[in-house]
Every structure is written in C-alpha cells, then in structure tokens.
Simulated assay, not measured.
Amino acid sequence: MMEEGGDGKMKEETFSLNSKISDVIRDEAFSGFGRLLFPVDLALSPVMTLKDLGKALLWYSYIRPERTVSLVNELKSRALAGERVFYDIYSPAEKAADPRKKDTGLFFFRGKPQGKTAILSAGGGFVYVGAMHDSFPHAQELAKRGYNAFAIIYRVGAREACEDLSRAIAFIHDHAGELQVDIRDYSLWGGSAGARMAAWVGTYGTGAFGERPYPQPAAVIMEYTGLSDVTGKEPPTYNCVGTTDGIAWYGTMKRRIEGIRANGTDADIEIFPGLPHGFGLGEGTVAEGWLERAVRFWQRQMKD
C-alpha cells in the first residue's frame, strides 16, 4: 500500500511487528509470489503477525522479529524501486505437469552489479522452508557486503529439494548476464536440511539431480546438520554448530570436516558453546559474526 505524504507525494507504507502475515502476502509489491515469503507447507493463521511468526518455525531458536520486519520492508522497497526480487525457476508447462513446482522460486537480494554469487537454502526438516529465519537474513547481510544472494524456495522432500537447488544453479548460470551477477566461484549456503542440500548438490553435482553438469561451487557453507558421509569429492566446506544442538551433534560435524581435510580439501568448523539448533545468524549470541568468517573462508577459495 502507498499513502500520500504532507508534500503531496506518495510514500511507502512500511510493515511493523504487528502487521499480519496475510497482509504482507497480499501486498501489491509481492503480487504473484507473496505467499512464498512464508512457509507454504505450514498452516499459518491468517491473523498471525510478523512478531509471532517465530512461534510457527519448528526447530529454530533466537528468532528476531525485528529482522523479519526489516526483511519484508527491504524486499518491498526494492520491488517498488523497480528491482525484480523474485524469479521463477520452472516454466508454466513444468508447473502444470507438477503442481508442487508452483511453490518454488528464487528471492534475489541484489548486491553489486557483477558481484560474486551466493545461493542459500533454508532448513525446515524437509517439512517446510524456514527462509525468513534461515536464508533471507543471511542473503540480506551478504547483499550489504556487495554479494548477489539468492534464497531458494523449494519443494519439501530431500530429492525434490536437491532437484530444485540444481535447477536454481542452472537458472543463475544461464541468466548470469541478465541478472548482472558473476557466477564464477559461487557458493552454496544452507542451514539444517538446507545444509544437506548444499552439501549433496555441491558434492554430487547438478548432473545427479536432473540438470546438465554445471561447475562445482567454490565453497559450501553449512550450519547445524549431522551429515556424516565423505566421498572425497567435497568442495571446500565451512561448518558451524552449537554444543547443545539436540538435532545435529557437533561431534558428527567435526568428524566430517576432519575427513574432508584428510582428503586434502580446505575445510573449517566453528563450535559454539551452549547454542542449540537453528540459531540462524546468531545475533546476540556467542555465534554472532560467524557469517563474516564464513565469507572470508569463501573468499579464500576464489580463483577468478
């Protein structure tokens, strides 16, 4: 919505903590994709506010409603300024053949023109996509640093999710000129189930999930997932996790990083005392600042 200011010009009406999620979804700035800002696989009350969204995001901790408000306001501002903030990754024909593909796509937090590219997958246990806490905030912060950050909304189900991530990688590679991004040395980021997606696609490649082969990412950045397998084909990998995580034990993650290093590949892990699962950016916790260190790890892998 827009309202007239005292100078007669139209000014943007921003969302607040008390804004209803349903009003955000219906906002004209998000026409055609507003529902995908929030988990479509969860039954959210039509009167739920942005302040209360965190109560619905199972398995997550340290959710900051103020960050949620800043995200929807930034995306709206970008859209009203003429930026395209959402891209479909499947054609109308593909969506007609598989209606679940209607609930997929990429939210784009634009950084610098021709800046490097990060692709982020939120977690949610392959039950829902918790982007508002587990990928949008990271994308927002990466864009502030000049990186072009894409947050994927995918179909739940491990295989389908990896297919959607592979399609996103293909889409960005094939449209890099139009998007004005540098896809060389791109990185894959993910938390929980999203971290598994990043690891699986990063290791096995897009060709294993229905797309033609595209270059392997320069780095995989993973938060709190208990993946244990090491094949010897892993990209350079950064992990972070808390010691009180009851879903992804830090010991499993530490052993995997050691296994990747043993194969001669750069890998690093940060283990945060007392943190549970799903801390996101870790704002206000001992993990705060991990994203900056992950960026430095990614930069270390860049060749172009």
Rank of each mutant, 00 (worst) to 15 (best):
E3A: 11
G5Q: 11
G5N: 12
K11H: 00
L17A: 15
E28D: 06
F30P: 01
F30E: 04
G32P: 10
L36Q: 09
P39Y: 06
P39H: 09
D41P: 05
L44T: 02
V47A: 10
T49L: 10
D52L: 00
L53C: 13
L53Q: 14
K55L: 15
A56L: 05
A56Q: 06
S61A: 15
I63L: 11
E66Y: 04
T68W: 00
V69N: 03
S70A: 15
V72D: 00
E74T: 15
E74P: 06
R78L: 14
G82I: 00
V85E: 01
Y90G: 04
P92Q: 01
K95Q: 14
D103P: 14
T104V: 08
F109N: 01
R110G: 04
P113L: 15
P113I: 15
T117Y: 07
T117M: 06
A118W: 15
I119E: 12
I119W: 11
L120Y: 10
L120E: 06
S121V: 12
A122V: 10
V129W: 09
H133R: 07
H133D: 07
D134R: 04
S135H: 03
P137T: 09
E141F: 01
A143N: 02
N148E: 04
A149V: 00
F150M: 02
A151D: 15
Y154N: 15
R159C: 14
S166K: 07
F171D: 01
F171L: 06
D174S: 09
H175R: 09
G177H: 08
V181L: 03
W189I: 13
G190I: 03
R196E: 15
M197S: 13
A199E: 00
A199V: 08
W200G: 03
V201W: 08
G205I: 11
G205A: 14
A208F: 08
F209V: 03
G210W: 08
R212N: 03
P213M: 14
P213K: 12
P217M: 14
P217Q: 14
A219I: 02
A219Q: 03
E223N: 07
E223T: 06
E223S: 12
G226V: 00
G226H: 00
V230Y: 08
T231G: 02
G232V: 11
K233W: 06
P236W: 12
G242K: 09
T243Q: 12
T244Q: 08
I247R: 10
W249R: 09
W249V: 09
T252N: 02
M253I: 11
K254G: 02
R256Q: 13
I257T: 08
G259T: 11
A262E: 12
G264N: 13
I271K: 05
I271A: 07
F272M: 13
P273E: 15
G274Y: 05
H277A: 01
H277E: 02
G278N: 06
F279A: 10
G280K: 05
G282C: 08
G284P: 04
T285P: 01
E288L: 04
G289A: 03
W290D: 01
W290S: 00
E292V: 03
W298L: 02
Q299C: 03
Q301E: 13
Q301L: 12
Q301D: 09
M302V: 12
K303Y: 10
